[in-house]
C-alpha cells in the first residue's frame, strides 16, 4: 500500500503544477531544499520508497518554467530516475500482472517510470542550468544513455536507431567506451553496445565487431542479457559477418568465447578485420 501511495504521489507531482493552482500554501525554497537533502540521504541508505516520496514532494511544489526552483526540480527528477533505475536492475518493487494471475515484480515498470522522470528533468534543464544546478549536461547525457539501454533491452531497434542517428559521437567504439565509463551505467553497458552493434552492423563491420566484443564482455553485469544474446553475437563474429577477425600480432583467428588472443593476450577488441575467404 505504501508503495502505491509513494508512487501515486510522485506522478501526480509529475503531472505538474498542482499545488500552486489549487491555492495550497507552497513550501519555501529552503524547505524544498531540505526535503531534497533528505531524499538524497534516503537514497544513500537504500530507502528507495522514502527517497521517491520526498522527491515527489519537491516535484509537486515546483514548476518547470520557474528558474528559482528549477534546479531543485531537476535534481529531484534525476534522483527519482536514479532510484527507479537501481530498483529496475536490483530489487524491483513495482508490480505487473502475470499470465499466472499472480502479480510479480516489474523491472520494466521501473524503467518506464525512470524514463518519465528523465523527461521531467529535460523539461526544466535549461532553467535549472540558469538557476545554478551542477553538471546538467552530464546528467542529461546519463538520461539519454539510460533510455537507450532500456530501448535496446526491449528490442526496440527503430527508436534506438533514431537516437543514435543524432549521436554521431557514439559511432566509434573507443569514444563510446569513454562515454559509457560512468559507474551508473555498469549494468546497462552491454545493452548500449548491443544497440550500437545493431546500428552499424550493415555498414561498418569492423566497428560492429568491436561493439559486439564489448557487449559480450559486459554481458555478465547486465540484467536479462542472457546466453541466447551472447550466442547470437558470437555467431555473427564467427560466421555471419563478411569479415573475419584476426589478432594483429600473430594473425590467429578470433575465438569469440575468449576475451583475448591465447598466444599473446591481445584483447579481442583490438583484432583487425579482413575479407572472409
Amino acid at each position: 500500500m505504501r508503495t502505491l501511495l509513494v508512487y501515486l504521489a510522485l506522478f501526480s507531482a509529475a503531472a505538474g503544477a498542482v499545488g500552486c493552482a489549487a491555492g495550497r500554501p507552497v513550501p519555501t525554497r529552503e524547505i524544498l531544499a531540505g526535503e531534497l537533502a533528505q531524499a538524497r540521504e534516503a537514497q544513500q541508505r537504500d530507502d528507495a520508497q522514502r527517497a521517491l516520496e520526498l522527491a515527489s514532494g519537491v516535484l509537486s511544489n515546483t514548476r518547470a518554467a520557474d528558474t528559482d526552483s528549477a534546479a531543485l526540480r531537476f535534481e529531484a527528477a534525476m534522483l527519482a530516475a536514479r532510484v527507479h533505475l537501481r530498483a529496475a536492475s536490483e530489487t524491483p518493487f513495482l508490480r505487473e500482472p502475470r499470465a499466472s494471475g499472480v502479480p510479480g515484480p516489474s523491472a520494466v515498470a521501473h524503467s518506464m517510470a525512470a524514463a518519465r522522470c528523465f523527461e521531467l528533468a529535460r523539461r526544466c534543464a535549461s532553467a535549472a542550468q540558469r538557476g545554478g544546478a551542477n553538471a546538467v549536461a552530464a546528467e542529461l547525457e546519463l538520461a539519454n544513455y539510460a533510455e537507450l539501454a532500456f530501448h535496446s533491452q526491449l528490442g526496440l531497434g527503430a527508436s534506438c536507431n533514431a537516437f543514435l542517428q543524432r549521436a554521431p559521437g557514439l559511432a566509434n567504439a573507443k569514444s563510446a567506451a569513454e562515454r559509457f565509463a560512468r559507474p551508473e551505467l555498469a549494468r546497462q553497458r552491454a545493452w548500449l553496445y548491443l544497440a550500437l552493434f545493431e546500428h552499424v552492423r550493415n555498414r561498418d563491420e569492423l566497428e560492429a565487431y568491436r561493439f559486439a566484443v564489448l557487449a559480450i564482455e559486459e554481458s555478465s553485469a547486465a540484467r536479462g542479457f542472457d546466453v541466447r544474446r551472447v550466442a547470437r553475437l558470437e555467431r555473427w563474429i564467427a560466421s555471419e559477418a563478411t569479415l573475419e577477425f584476426h589478432c594483429p600480432k600473430c594473425d590467429l583467428l578470433v575465438a569469440p568465447g575468449l576475451r583475448a588472443c591465447p598466444n599473446d593476450r591481445t584483447p579481442n577488441a583490438e583484432f583487425v578485420g579482413r575479407k572472409r575467404l
Binding site: A115, A137, L140, N144, L148, G157, A158
Partner: peptide, 18 residues
C-alpha cells in the same frame, strides 16, 4: 559550450522486429 540537448528521447517504437 553550455548548450544542452533537451530533446525528448525518441518514442517507443510501435513496429518491432524480434
Amino acid at each position: 559550450s553550455q548548450a544542452l540537448d533537451t530533446r525528448p528521447f525518441p518514442r517507443l517504437a510501435a513496429q518491432v522486429a524480434d
